[in-house]
Design a protein around this nucleic acid. Structure first.
Lengths: 114, 114
DNA sequence: GTAGCTAGATACCTTTTGGAAAGTGACCAA
DNA sequence: TTGGTCACTTTCCAAAAGGTATCTAGCTAC
């Protein structure tokens, strides 16, 4: 879903920390378990995914529901507040679709000037 | 214009690095000199403002025009590409106006739970 | 009794980012 | 000769972000 080869590090726009936007986009499709997020969000380590989810939970963006089962099961779900982030994320994605390549060209021209 | 007491560090949305969005908003009002940016963007040090402007220039967002005068004069201006960033920035500002306080309340509730 | 499953925790390390403080160079005005 | 203006640059440093690798608990299945 999110290719680490995609030059997202070059993106001038960031929602929260490095992975928050990807988590929110994933969770928009419905509640997800920890391991169900780890797969599509390629390259995220468990430590950092936990950090990201905790921060989003703290800010009221996601809820965390742990089921007392064996093996344990935990589900993460977007809140109403979390869903409000979708508008700015959509605007940022639209910007990237329209202007990202122009930005990369400008950067290359700058780097290759004498 | 931008109060450092504003809890912008809590903002989940960032355009580029810490100061880029403020520079772009300032430059939207017209070309500005280095010292004219340093004043409204309170708290930015000359070193970091230079870094920010260089990065924006590299990405084709601003142009830098140096006049061979004494004392030197340098003007920064938004490019067409730079102006395209205004849509996502506006979306992020709208989000903040509508939901930022709710986020802070959720955060406080999280921190004060037992 | 050994291995596996889940959802992490922990220790440690590197990279990136941002900041403080001082210096620079060219000229001009007093 | 001293100080001022402007747009930086340089050096040093601290904090934050993110990564690797390993460990944990509790139960089940073999």
């Amino acid at each position: 879903m999110f290719d680490p080869a995609c030059p997202s590090s070059a993106m001038p726009i960031r929602i929260g920390d490095k992975w928050s936007a990807q988590v929110i986009v994933c969770l928009d499709e419905g509640p997800r378990r920890f391991s169900e997020l780890q797969v599509p969000i390629r390259g995220v380590t468990p430590k950092v995914l936990t950090q990201t989810l905790r921060a989003l939970e703290r800010d009221g963006m996601v809820t965390r529901t742990a089921y007392a089962e064996i093996p344990p099961r935990v589900e993460y779900e977007l809140t109403e507040l979390g869903r409000t982030l979708f508008a700015p994320i959509a605007a940022c994605r639209a910007w990237a679709a329209d202007n990202f390549s122009a930005m990369l060209e400008a950067r290359e021209a700058y780097d290759n000037r004498d």
